[in-house]
Design a protein around this nucleic acid. Structure first.
Lengths: 220, 220
DNA sequence: TCGGACAATATTGTCAACAATATTGTCAGC
DNA sequence: GCTGACAATATTGTTGACAATATTGTCCGA
């Protein structure tokens, strides 16, 4: 795939490869995904590439038209809004469940990441903050113990991956977001399920609001 | 597929065919899905059947082992509980959004189905009640206007399809469920988003509770 | 120069043959 | 009868060739 590997990649691996490239914008919306190109770049057989593209179509990440092949599906602002609404619902529940029955290990991890986030605010490192922010949310989902929801969120986050970093380049948003985080950690550790859920909801909703202000002219 | 059709079914159609058979129990958990059998029954080519099985694996409905083929994945009580938790989150949000901005047409449809549900209670028709119950929930999701969540719920409901009918054979549960429905319709029409969401949540949670009592010995 | 017809190429869709592995059947030896 | 080795069968995995369609290039006439 990257270097020179012996065994040919499996269909799932090719799907991962393409998905990553879509996520970080290396494949842009509307771009056609020609089978031969992917074969050349991955070393996979055509069957595997086709399998991968069909899987990604199932995830809603690409669309396949007859005799025209696969292309990266673009997600408009309306769909982004719907994804955020789903996140509000799901991560809200996760916060509540985390408050109810997270393990000490999960709580410890959460605090550790929170410390690093605080440091990022001091250092004004929005990029690193973005990465740790993903980790922070992931820990809460994992701590809720619901792997079904975890899987749903993993898929929902793919199309909005870039956007999840965008807003933190605004200093003010970065500070308020981290203030949200600190309050929420307190609620989560205190076992206040209702409070944590409400806090998570407004936190994500605020994230979308600042985002839609930034991106509104882009989407028109 | 059923009768004698001319054109061969596409991969998506074969996937639908298998998914339906899994949903209504015609294919039971653990059962191996042999490619040749599906070819015989659907008239599809092997490529299409393989494509279909891979798609279903992506949906988490079957599992594929190397050189052992596809088999229907079984969902334990723990996973069912997690699915219900996700439903609580997502349908709760849908209820709130329905209350906020559902169209008059959606409201009208909801009332119509509610009337039919009431009739089912009078007639003691649990089977018909189950079908209309699906429709009732679907209308609320549709009325929320969030197609992303609608898609998530459609997938989540597949593995628990049978269970969604089970509890209504208990007369008491059927009555309380319909009482929930009527209260919720009132809240939805009144535009009480918070009330509707809370009602939907406890409605679904109650559904799982009665279910887990019925099925607990089955899952052991 | 423009546009349409036609050819050339590129790309995807389909299928069948073959390889690799698992599953089942058989039988000798005990 | 039971067990293990081996053969026979069944099933899945892979590849390549070919068909179907789309895309691009070319040329000619108005």
């Amino acid at each position: 795939m990257d270097g020179m590997e012996k065994r040919a990649p499996t269909g799932v691996e090719v799907a991962d490869w393409v998905r990553n490239r879509i996520r970080n914008g290396r494949f842009s919306p509307g771009q056609r995904l020609v089978e031969v190109d992917i074969i050349r770049q991955t070393g996979a057989s055509r069957s595997k590439v086709r399998e991968a593209l069909q899987r990604l179509e199932g995830e809603g990440l690409v669309q396949i038209e007859e005799f025209r092949g696969a292309s990266v599906k673009s997600t408009g602002l309306e769909e982004v809004a719907q994804i955020y609404r789903a996140r509000i619902a799901l991560e809200g529940i996760c916060a509540a469940d985390f408050a109810r029955h997270a393990s000490d290990e999960d709580k410890r991890q959460l605090c550790a990441v929170q410390d690093q986030l605080d440091q990022c605010v001091i250092d004004r490192a929005p990029d690193r903050f973005g990465r740790l922010n993903l980790e922070w949310h992931r820990i809460i989902v994992q701590g809720s113990g619901n792997s079904v929801i975890a899987e749903l969120l993993k898929r929902l986050n793919v199309p909005i991956h870039r956007l999840l970093f965008e807003s933190f380049y605004d200093e003010g948003r970065l500070r308020t977001a981290n203030a949200d985080h600190k309050k929420m950690v307190a609620l989560l550790l205190a076992g206040d399920a209702e409070g944590a859920e409400a806090a998570m909801r407004s936190h994500i909703a605020d994230g979308f609001d600042t985002l839609s202000k930034i991106e509104s002219e882009f989407y028109g």
